[in-house]
Amino acid sequence: MVSNRISIDSLACTGCKDCVVACIEQLQQRTQKEDDCISSRIQVLGTEPLFFLTICRQCIEAPCVDACITGALRQAVIGVMLNDITCIGCGMCTMACPFGAIWLNKDREKSVKCDGCPNHAIPPCINACRPEALQLEQKARIAGTHRRRSSEKMITIERRVDGPETSSYMTHGGNG
């Protein structure tokens, strides 16, 4: 199973916070009750014109897991998983996370972090995000996608710089 790691592009974020609403809604559905104490697992910080999206990066050697004293945070195949029952709300993980992507729900005294909504093919926050600042990232295929995209760009640039006629074996390649 592949973790639903969510890629973020803060530059594209418009600060509408639809993702936050979507996250809370789906958490309410999960618990099957109206709960005022639910905290969103994604945060939108900053002000116009620059916003910062903060969400768990599902690290592989996660510092939060190392910091967790009760073993509530666990490195699973699908990402870093938080056991809500064993979490004692000590806040060590929030201090360890370099992204600030895990925080405490003060009312419930438990940590809050994104679990990538393993029950959803596409997490609701991504569906809610209109400017496409949030995207689902296929684990381990990111670099491949980037390579392909940059290479395609590179062809266009070479053609733009040198003209389509000359971008060929004879002018650039020679006979090895």
Partner: peptide
Amino acid sequence: IGCRECIAACPFGAMD
């Protein structure tokens, strides 16, 4: 720490 942010950041896909 294996957060793979560098991989997402590299526009060439040179990191993996």
